[in-house]
Design a binder for these strands. Structure first.
Lengths: 351, 351
DNA sequence: AGCGACGCTGTAAACCTTTACATGAGTTGT
DNA sequence: ACAACTCATGTAAAGGTTTACAGCGTCGCT
């Protein structure tokens, strides 16, 4: 018969240590403020009684929970895992715990998690999905009060929320520049979901790159898609079915890139000989794939750390205005890109 | 100047609705127990005042948090993501939230999360890493009191904790049976980390399979490893450097399998023509890999759901004894296995 | 009419901690 | 020697909810 422990409280500890309740509280909260003798007595008593702080009581009284909500659209997406580790690392350093909310892209669900802020159950929130959940929560009304919130990777339009990420437009440009530098002139782009802000930034970078390097830009060059292998495959199929297929593809993320490669292989094409592919994100499997993916590496751990650090400041000082942070990305050249088999024209020099 | 909302409490709602505090509480907690008229007045007042329940106060009073801790050794491991979704789904159905604790295999960290149970901040715990964290927490002493805990996938030795998973031994056996059925006689096994229980169960299944099908069993056939691509690669290299390399490999999980394939390819071998590989887990990338992985599929979402359901029962009734649950697994045959190039002997029929 | 039962509502205690304020002892400065 | 401080400690209120218990009106039954 598992007996729940009749929990010891501060009162019990105070009694046993022959001090007042307040002194016990202070002994734990502000180590300097209680004399050496008493502190020792208190610690000993707490140990003997197997005392543990009741966090709910503390939160109730101090109006803060020590918890931070992290909203993720899909925890299965490997892009987020390292990010999460960075967040968690920094959170621990700040004495905070994180609560991961997987929204599956469901706004309703996101709102549920966001409500944790309202109920004082969380002190702040990190957004990973490019949408402000509160908005959905009860119609169009945005919560009037401001909570500590920071966004990672995606700038949230119309919301005054600090962000840490990379310059996606520039990265997209660089991906195209790499392909153009190899001699490709017919470069397609498979995009992410239309409602995602990153999609447009990367596509914009693509467009500028294509223009700057004098490459082709035909109507079907920009394929709509989604951040998944399946979508990448489907889009690649369309591209390959077109009248003049591209010799290279810039995919909006690595999963799309993998999908594209699968489809190309299925049609007997060799990557990179017949088709070059560059991805985005540099997920763990990018390096292990066959061929190893050329892709844009984002400093994910650092992004997580920085975001959490910013949030920490915001929690202690809500009036603090945080500026956006843009970190360095990196084009990682691996085996999925090569010069086109028959260079349509001679290689274009980079501007 | 972001003004924190001067939060409305139940008292305010009671005042506005001209009822007592208790009635408001009951109106929310037990819908049936308050008259229609009052309920309406209360709901209206709550809406007008923008009232939200203070969860900390509730937790303090009711001694439960509505939170469940899920301990994961590595959130980056794709095996866990779907599992998590199953857990989360079921948790939501039960009105519980989950707190994901990534331990990075660090016992100290696991103990930190486990302490959430002590501090009444969590009502229960789901273990995904095969170790009981409390044990590490303060030396050898296991907490005397019992908390609602259930383990997924790994039976925890020496602890009386209910588990949901699959029969890993049988699955290992089946993997070998599949290879033997294709005609392989020289089948190696790359194992997971030695301190993991699954490692031994799968290895045991392998041994029994090899024996039952009259295959070779040489000293180096069982390669120690870890659940990672890198480890799989290294082990495969050793196997291939041996005097009589295997024609097939059973890897303890998919990442090992991918590592093994990478190494084989690097040496100019073709999979499955020169080497058959079967993995374990059927992670998302198994299907997309080249070649698509033959592997053991675990019903991950269902495992998560069941575990959470069991935990739910345990939370409401701590005395309830839960029996272990073994779910159905499935061997998924894809492109990474084939008959050996030169069948060493004629195909062995399955017993 | 009287009695018990029942259903709804109110009163007040309890949950455990933090913290403003009060107290008193010890120290410093003049 | 005494005022003015400092410092460690104690007292008690506050934080927002749940819930045992009590009160009261209504209904049905005899």
């Amino acid at each position: 018969m598992p007996t729940r422990r009749s929990t010891a409280t501060m009162k019990d500890v105070a009694l046993k240590a022959r001090v007042s309740l307040a002194t016990v509280s202070r002994a734990f909260a502000a180590p300097g403020s209680v004399s050496e003798t008493l502190t020792q007595r208190i610690v000993a008593a707490a140990r003997d009684l197997n005392y543990t702080l009741n966090v709910n009581a503390r939160s109730l009284r101090s109006q803060s929970s020590g918890l931070v909500v992290v909203l993720i659209p899909d925890i299965g997406n490997p892009f987020f895992s390292v990010l999460l580790q960075g967040i968690e690392e920094q959170a621990r350093a700040l004495g905070l715990a994180i609560l991961i909310g997987d929204t599956h892209g469901d706004r309703e669900l996101a709102a549920t998690y966001a409500r944790l802020l309202d109920t004082r159950r969380a002190d702040g929130m990190i957004l990973l999905n490019g949408t402000v959940p509160n908005r959905a929560h009860d119609g169009a009304r945005l919560s009037p009060q401001r909570y500590p919130v920071v966004a990672i990777s995606e700038r949230i339009p119309g919301a005054d929320i600090a962000m840490v990420g990379i310059n996606n437009r520039a990265a997209g440009f660089e991906a195209v520049a790499h392909l153009a530098g190899l001699g490709h002139r017919r470069i397609a782009h498979i995009m992410g979901p239309a409602d995602n802000i990153l999609t447009h930034e990367r596509a914009q970078g693509y467009r500028e790159g294509v223009l700057a390097h004098g490459c082709d830009l035909w109507p079907e060059a920009l394929q709509p898609g989604a951040f998944s292998i399946r979508a990448g495959r489907a889009a690649m199929a369309k591209l390959l079915d077109g009248p003049a297929p591209p010799t290279a593809v810039f995919a909006a993320n690595d999963e799309i890139a993998i999908g594209a490669i699968i489809e190309a292989k299925a049609r007997g094409l060799h990557v990179p000989r017949d088709l070059s592919v560059v991805g985005f994100d540099d997920i763990e499997y990018a390096e292990s794939y066959d061929p190893a993916l050329t892709t844009i590496n984002q400093p994910r751990r650092e992004m997580g750390r920085r975001a959490m650090a910013m949030l920490g400041e915001l929690i202690t000082d809500p009036d603090h205005r945080q500026a956006d942070v843009n970190l360095e990305y990196q084009l990682v050249v691996r085996a999925s890109t090569a010069p086109p088999r028959v260079a349509s024209r001679k290689p274009v020099s980079r501007t």
